[in-house]
Design a protein around this nucleic acid. Structure first.
Lengths: 245, 245
DNA sequence: AAGTGGTCTAGACCACCAT
DNA sequence: TGGTGGTCTAGACCACTTA
């Protein structure tokens, strides 16, 4: 390892190098990394140091270890969505896969607040769209999503409508963008006419409002999302501390 | 280590033994554990194995390492409250310490739902009380708390009113109960007359409702809490993935 | 200076998976 | 059978704290 910075332990430098490799798609999602022995050789450190670096990336759910098989770059699929990125549960505690329906799609410009949250310039081009999410057939969540157009050059309503995979899988496979973490701010709100109609509620019904920023490697923001949730029969589950959340 | 169960790695057995010691107050909150070398000797394992067990307990925020000083049992104080157990932030992102005011205190019996969530019998004695939390002087959160009386035998309104410390610190120092983790379910609700009055809102204002179960070692539930939050100028911050949450 | 946790190494052996 | 990650060990050296 080159060590010009010093002060950082070896395993952190290794980790940073691995993250750099992941961000550069040196290893694609779903692929195996070189074995720990090979990585140790390549970085000129011992296996234990490699393990400590990989341990942290596994804890951050960027890598997945499988005993006897190898260490893999995490892939966005239904399981990962439900476990780590979708926090709405039925009142009985069960999680269901949301079924999305695209309601609207348009191009626009980032306002000052959006630009700040996305770390782009005010007025830069963005894509905006709305998704209705059904759980068990019932409309429960209304998502309003904002993306920097620069990162999703050819994204269209057609692409969104015809996808079979989760939306983060689409970002990952088609645009090379790995959502690695989200930060969410929750508030209570009242349904306006539009939201009430789509969710099948009366105007003024209470809604849970979730403002999410999705981040990729190095905490770079890549998506804004505001979710309005009908919590009549569902809730947002926050379980910190167990298994690394 | 006795190994009658097998199948569990050594460091997990060590971890279980440490948790048992913590639950039994072999080491009290704020105290240092024996040094890693001493623990290794005591359990008959290598230091590396001790470190792996302690690593996990540090990740779960049960233990705190301080280089050069030792490893300590985590204490409930303002810092821990703000960092790990209080998720309400001002819209500008700042966290403030809540100032509690006891509004009501009574004894009662657990209904079926409470009994199930607290893992006690239906009809068992419970304590119920309400706290108003002010942030920056303004009333923002109304807490309704339910405790199994068996765990808090001599808890009275006077004790609650006169405490200087956080409520989890009180549980810890006075009743020997360490809250280690919380699980929360969030919904949107409308303010009823009572809540609206206390929070200085109109009836029917939207409120964020948080149903929390607080757990001690071995995931034993020790407290139920329903928080009603005025989210006009505050929000609930959910940041999974960064630093183990 | 002595004691603590933090890093790094080297190697042995085990459990699991593919072939 | 060979390769992978998972566990466990033993020891060296460093960084930090306390006295």
């Amino acid at each position: 390892m080159s060590t010009e910075l010093a002060a950082a332990p070896l395993y952190r430098e290794v980790k940073a190098a691995l993250v750099a490799g992941l961000a550069a798609r040196e290893w694609a999602p779903g692929e195996a990394l070189p074995s720990e022995a090979r990585l140790a050789e390549r970085f000129g450190v011992s296996i234990g140091t490699i393990r400590k670096a990989v341990d942290e990336l596994v804890a951050e759910r960027v890598l997945v270890r499988q005993q006897g098989r190898g260490t893999f770059v995490a892939t966005h699929g239904p399981r990962r969505l439900l476990f780590h990125f979708f926090h709405i549960v039925r009142d009985d505690g069960e999680k269901e896969l949301p079924e999305p329906e695209l309601l609207a799609f348009e191009r626009g410009r980032a306002d000052a607040a959006e630009a700040a949250r996305l770390a782009i310039g005010a007025g830069d081009r963005v894509l905006r769209f709305r998704n209705l999410l059904r759980l068990g057939g019932e409309p429960v969540v209304l998502d309003a999503i904002v993306l920097p157009q620069a990162l999703f050059p050819d994204l269209t309503a057609k692409v969104l409508r015809e996808r079979e995979e989760t939306i983060y899988a689409l970002y990952q496979t088609r645009y090379g963008i790995d959502v690695v973490r989200t930060v969410e701010r929750l508030k209570a709100a009242l349904a306006d006419r539009a939201a009430a109609r789509v969710l099948g509620l009366g105007t003024g019904a209470p809604l849970l409002r979730i403002d999410r920023t999705a981040l990729t490697y190095h905490d770079r923001p890549v998506e804004l999302r505001t979710s309005l949730v009908n919590t009549a029969h569902h809730g947002y589950l926050a379980d910190f501390g167990k298994s690394g959340a």
